[in-house]
Structure formats: C-alpha cells, structure tokens
Nucleic acid binder design. Structure first.
Length: 430
RNA sequence: UCGGUGGUAGCUCAGUGGCAGAGCGAUCGGCUGUUAACCGAUUGGUCGUAGGUUCGAAUCCUACCCGCCGAGCCA
C-alpha cells in the first residue's frame, strides 16, 4: 500500500492505493476517476478494453466519496497536470455513498461550514490545514532549537490576566466561579523564571461579540516568555520566528500554496525578515496624513492597521505605545514613563495584529502600583507578585495568534477557514 | 451592541401584485483523453416564521427568527 504523496517514486510499477473518489467522468469506453487519499490528489484512468467488463461498469458508476482500494500502474502522462497518473487494473469498494452534499459547484459560507466535517476533505481546507500543521510544527522546532521549554498552562482561571477583554464564565458546581483563559502569559512568566526560556501552546478564549473576519471565540496562541530579554531582543525574536516560519512554509508547502492560488510575492519579503519598526507617535503622523487622525493615547482600529500596513511589503512593528493604552504589566521607558516598551506586529493586507509583545515590569513596587491603578484583584495576583519578590529580572515575551498568522500566510478571507472547526458567535456545530 | 445586506428546488440564484423558474447536482441513456467535460431525457418546492392588506401575495405592510458583510473590542 502506498500513498499519493509518494506516487512519483513508483513510476512504472503496479501499486495498491486506499483512496476516496472525488469525481468521475466517463465516456463510453474510458473513465477518469479523481482520487484523494489524505496525502494528495491524483487522476486515475480506466479503459474499457483493458479491464474485465464488470470492473469498467463498476468504475464508471462510482459516486462521489466512494471509499475504495485500487490497484493500478503508475505512469507518466503529460496530459495529466501532475505529470503522473494511475492506470487502474482492479478496484475493491469499502463503501458506496449516496447523495454526498458537497457537489462540484459553488456553495455559500453557511452551507460549507454546516458541512465542515466533510468540507475538510476538499482541496482548499485540506491545503490550508496542511499548512497549519507546518506552521505549528515550525513553531515547535524554532523554539526547541533555541533552547525553549514548552510550558503548559491552565485553561481554568480564577481571574483575568488583563482587565480588557470579557471572559467566559464557568459554573463550579454552583458553589464558585471560574473563567476560561484568555492568556497564559502570567503563568509563562513563572515558567521563564524557572526555565529561562519557555513558550506556551494552546487554545484561548475571548467572550467578545466580535463579528469580523479576524475573530473567533476560541483560538490558538503561542506565548513565549524569556528571562533577561529586553524589548529590542523581544522584537528580534519575533522577527526571526516569523520570517523562519514563512520561509519554511514557502519551501515545504509549495503545492498547498499553489492549490490555494496564493500570490507568493506577498509572502517572500516577509521570509527575509527586516520588518520595519515605527513608533506609535510616528504612526499617528502617518495616519493623520492619510486622513485617519487620532488623539494621542487612542488605540488603533481596523482601518488604521490596514492603512499603516499598506505602505510596506512585510509585517511592521508599531512600538512604544502610550502607557495608558496598554496592559498593566508593561515596562515603561526609563526616560519616558508615559510610553511602554511594547510592540504590536501588524500584518500586510488588513490581516491585523498578529503579535502583541512587551518587556514586563520587573520592579515590585511599580507593579503593585499598576495593579492598584487598574483595579485588579490583588489577592489573585499575589503569586504573580512573588515573581518580582524573589530574584526578579528584566524579561519579555509575546503572544502570536495562530489563526491570524495563518490567515495572512494562506490569504484566507476569514480566520474561520484556517481552523478545523471554528467556534464563533453564530457557530458551535459541527 | 450598532450600521448595511440577505433568506425561493439538494446547491448557486433569477422572479418585485396575476399558472413556481434557470443552471448545477442526482437518476437513466450516449460519447476513447476528460479537467466545474459534453449531448439528450427524467427528477425536483412549507418561497425563513407568524399575522395583516388584496379578488389574488414569493412580491406590499407589521412583528419575530436565522445568516452574511462592516464597526467597536481584540490575537
């Protein structure tokens, strides 16, 4: 038994293949079976006078998504887009389906996501999720190669890490409440003080009633955290990581990107690194010239991010944000307490913020003051303050959203396309 | 939550006051190189739901339900 992925290596040989039929076209004496096996797609040919009559009759009548085992000869054929095709000798059915819902025809978004469990089999979701696997594997490799420890964090929380977003509330046997995690960062900081360099990898939850192409209720995030790393080093780490990932996907997932008809010239610059770095103050000036003026201290909206990104061919850092616009744990500049050592990484083409990162406050007194200013629950953060009490060091980290990053890489219309089963306001099934 | 837009055959849609339609799919037949194949036939309906106006409503009115797009918030 071989796979489509390795078919070319068996040129001229007779092979067995477990597969599904995606499409049948037949003439009176020749039929073409489009096959997929999970590793790829291939066309097979069956000719009436080369096989027993019943085999040909069976083949030309196969329905979409029939599961079968075929035996055939791998042969070169310039008329096939892949260069090789399979000349069928015999076939054996596992199951013959009726009325497969996803026909070779345009379908609407709602219909396709109602049938997401089946849609995954089709070319575009298949290619997208293969690239997702490569992206995640690349992240693990990147951090592992640099001496990071993967550090798993809890998903149940007693309170919010930041005071900004809404949390999903969990009923604890009617006696108490917990919340689903919106970030593992505070725990990652504990990890960094124990292991030096750590990263978290897992799902995270935001109870925002957001209905845009950049939002899911449940999404996946990687949050690296590094002891003794400063703001500049943090940005460099982010740039190294993202350019590595883009390069790796361009190298290893060319076929999938081609299926998705991704314009590779939109990705190649990012694989070279050298992400532009502009300050928040400078960004305000640029935005003002584009007719998108903001007051100093205001956060950017989607139109602002898109407008800033359009001047560059790769992601850009916006750094040194107003202290009052950002989270409580961010380290201010020594000579400018109104601005913090943080950066958002904005993707090109309106895909929005891929990464938010910062140097963290390591001074106990300042952190205590910020917790009071933000009216955060001090008791629940007592352990977090211990990290500053016992051997505190400058440290930095960031969080990168996998779906947004992948949506940008594959050129998806919406983040729901880049996760197997999206969870949104209007979708909990399948 | 706000603004916009939509809901008609399995799917994608047309029909805007007068017999419920097309393409695709499916089924059957034809065709030896097809790529969303092609040709012929057959099949196909709670017009989102409820109420109202009218001789007559998919079409006009009211309310509600469910999507989609955008905004805010964020990754």
């Amino acid at each position: 038994m071989i796979s489509i992925e390795t078919l070319k290596a068996h040129l001229g040989k007779t092979v067995d293949l477990n597969a599904w039929v995606t499409r049948v076209r037949s003439s009176g004496k020749i039929a073409f079976l489009q096959l997929r096996d999970g590793t790829g797609f291939i066309q097979s040919v069956i000719v009436k006078n080369e096989v027993p009559e019943d085999v040909f009759a069976l083949a030309k009548g196969l329905n979409q998504e029939t599961s079968l085992k075929v035996r055939g000869e791998v042969r070169q054929d310039d008329r096939s887009p892949l260069g090789v095709e399979l000349g069928i000798i015999s076939l054996e059915l596992y199951q013959s389906p009726q009325d497969y819902p996803i026909t070779p025809k345009e379908h609407g978004v709602e219909f396709l996501f109602d049938h997401r469990h089946l849609h995954l089999r089709h070319r575009k979701p298949w290619a997208t999720l293969r690239i997702r696997d490569e992206l995640e594997r690349g992240m693990h490799d990147f951090f592992s190669d640099r001496g990071f420890i993967r550090f798993d964090v809890p998903l149940f929380m007693s309170t919010a890490a930041e005071d900004t977003t809404n949390l999903f509330e969990i009923d604890l046997f009617g006696e108490d409440k917990a919340y689903l995690s919106q970030s593992g960062q505070l725990y990652a900081e504990a990890g960094a003080m124990a292991f030096g360099k750590v990263y978290t990898f897992g799902p995270t939850f935001r109870a925002e009633k957001s209905k845009t192409r950049k939002h899911l209720l449940e999404f996946w995030m990687i949050e690296p955290e590094v002891a003794f790393l400063d703001h500049q080093g943090n940005m460099q780490l982010q740039e190294d990581m993202l350019s590595y990932l883009v390069k790796r996907i361009l190298d290893k997932k060319a076929y999938e990107l081609e299926l998705l008809e991704r314009d590779l010239t939109k990705l190649e610059p990012a694989s070279q690194g050298k992400f532009p770095r502009i300050t928040y103050d400078h960004a305000l000036e640029v935005l003002a010239k584009k007719g998108l003026g903001l007051e100093w201290g205001e956060d950017f909206g989607a139109p602002h991010e898109t407008a800033l990104g359009e001047d560059y061919d790769r992601p850009i850092f916006i750094e040194a944000w107003p202290t009052k616009a950002k989270a409580f744990y961010m380290q201010p500049f020594e000579n400018d307490p109104d601005r913090v050592k943080c950066a958002d990484l904005i993707a090109p083409d309106g895909y929005g913020e891929l990464i938010g990162g910062s140097e963290r406050i390591h001074d106990l007194a300042l952190l205590e003051q910020r917790i009071k200013e933000h009216k955060l629950p001090e008791a629940a953060l007592k352990w977090y303050l211990d990290l500053r009490r016992f051997g505190s060091v400058p440290h930095s980290g960031f969080g990168i959203g996998i779906e947004r990053t992948l949506a940008w890489i594959v050129g998806a219309d919406h983040v729901r396309e880049v996760i197997p089963f999206p969870r949104m306001l209007t979708r909990m099934e399948p």
